[in-house]
Design a protein around this nucleic acid. Structure first.
Lengths: 204, 204, 204, 204
DNA sequence: AATGAATGAGCATTCATTCAT
DNA sequence: TATGAATGAATGCTCATTCAT
């Protein structure tokens, strides 16, 4: 019935509004913070009526969830695809790190939502941790383990902890970039992190 | 419990109440999240009337600020003191990392406030970044620079970035510890971080 | 049930939809109450789109009005017809009472709407009082007056008040029947009311 | 500490506000209907802030409940007291009927709430039926049964039904009085109801 | 200093109604 | 006629903060 995906005339409208609301929410959340953002603001920014928001999302909170889910899905799908073409574990981690910062660096508002707004509640953190985030850490970890098996990385290291260390370092780069008054490129920071990290974990 | 404390004649009741409110707030914020926590809850937990809270703090937000400020002051003072007795830069960083996780690991509620609640608003993050946090990063950074001057650490590394990397890695250990369902000791994680970090930054 | 009705060729589909909406509304109002009932629920129950409801009714309130009007019209027409064949005033009142409870007892949902939902607003009560309800009371009253003229009923009684008394007693039977957890036949209650009522108003 | 009941200076204030809100609500509900009445209207009418209403009542609905409960309690207590001094069952029923209409006739707004607003929802009707209302019917019924035992009232009548008939007749008097454009005294209607009722149920 | 009753601004959400198709 | 997506007005309730006592 909808083989060609979105070619039918009614679906795009829907998708457009949903997209518009999501985009508006990212902007609004980034500028005012999740709790201070009013649904009415999001609606206005999206160019729809207040009530329309509720045709696409069950609640304000669901909007936040959706932003996270959609972005994580994209990121992970994108990541997996890139991984397929790379076999060297070091190169893989390098790619992951670059993709991580590229993505956040490309959309400052989205980065704010990810680095700041999504962190503000244990409840959310736990759910979010349980979902896509855990998967992301797993991706890093298994890549590292591959490297350990291949003798590239130090075998005695705990891969789980290593994954957190790399993630934490990248995460801090992103957070600092957002909070910094200075304007600089985020993506290049990946190399500095990788330099130290890989140097620290490589088997000699 | 009261006996020992009420012996100090120069520490009036005032300080006790302030302390009580602060302690209550940490517990309440940690369990309900900053935005969901009601001032009335904090007051009840502290054993004072709602209005009393406002004799010691200008607003709910100021309570959060105070928690951060007081803890950071303590941490930094404590840190500086320990630094005085240590001259080896590697040992210094090792000490900083241990203190960092020791402190958070010793008070789970406080850790939740630090790792989660304090992250939920750009406004707060910026202020908080500007204040004690920047100083903390500076402590790490200058220690690292000392090590570079001493030829212990790789001279070509950007000390500022290096400081963020170490901080980010430790920070992620703390956040994961909070969100984890498993109960384990946080402090020992410092060694694993240090292992990789020092291995990565040490001049060969 | 459908067969007989769809045979009438001059009653277009329109009437069917109107009927369907009315029937759906009775069910929905009876189960959720007028204020809690959503037009969308009625539309779904009737198997039409939300907007379609407004092709047949000006507003949600008008649906309630229509339920009342249509039922009262039917009841009164039905009553008049039956009255024609009866001349004895006592027999007439007996018939009215039986018809009253028969009708409500035959459709519990409709009874709920009549006994409960229609009573919830002075505005409605006044309008509804002004309309068919007043006519119904008048029917009872004039029948009673006929009986007074005929010397059957006590001449000194105020017919208007007497009509209200009979109506009130029957009305209470209906309301109690609806609210009762026990399931019993409503119609037979008419006889018990009539017993006392007629005994009380009959000239000796 | 509060031996003398309400003489302490803090309690009266509370009672005053609660009273004021209740009184205001009766006025507002009577004029606008329960659903159309805004809590803000009640607050303004009572001379308090919106939020104050919630210091005394959990919700708008609880206000309606309280109006009913308080009035029924009063009415029943009042009734019982009067009953003690009367032994003749006919006189008792006469008193009940008069008290019923006296009370409603004395406060038109309260009467509107009782006769109209309280009837508008099955949920409420059921609860309200279950509570004080059932007790009221029981009072009428047992009084009637006493009369049956004493040989004053026809023994073959079902007391439960008889009670509903009397109540229904009185109730209709009250409802009609409210809806009527003409202004007349409600209380005297009791005699007309009693005339027919007692004539109808008295043993010959 | 301490209290806690009172305040009132603020906001997510619902739903009757409309109207372009 | 029929649809159902879109609208936006409307409001109960919360809670940080104040202030009379």
């Amino acid at each position: 019935m909808r083989s060609a995906r979105s070619l039918s005339p009614d679906r795009p409208i829907v998708a457009d509004k949903r997209q518009a609301i999501l985009r508006a929410a990212i902007r609004i959340f980034a500028h005012n913070g999740y709790f201070s953002s009013k649904v009415a603001d999001i609606a206005r920014e999206a160019g729809v009526a207040d009530g329309t928001v509720y045709l696409y999302f069950k609640s304000k909170e669901e909007i936040l969830h959706s932003i996270f889910d959609r972005s994580m899905e994209e990121a992970i799908a994108d990541g997996r695809q890139r991984m397929e073409k790379i076999s060297d574990p070091r190169e893989r981690l390098r790619t992951i790190a670059h993709m991580h910062l590229d993505r956040l660096g490309a959309n400052r508002d989205l980065a704010v939502v990810f680095q700041v707004e999504l962190r503000g509640s244990t409840k959310f953190m736990e759910e979010f941790s349980a979902a896509g985030f855990a998967e992301y850490l797993k991706l890093i970890r298994s890549t590292f383990e591959d490297g350990q098996s291949a003798g590239v990385f130090r075998a005695e290291l705990n891969a789980k902890v290593v994954a957190k260390i790399l993630f934490g370092a990248l995460d801090e780069m992103a957070t600092n970039w957002i909070l910094s008054k200075r304007r600089y490129k985020l993506a290049p920071m990946a190399d500095q992190v990788l330099d130290i990290f890989l140097n620290g974990v490589t088997a000699k």
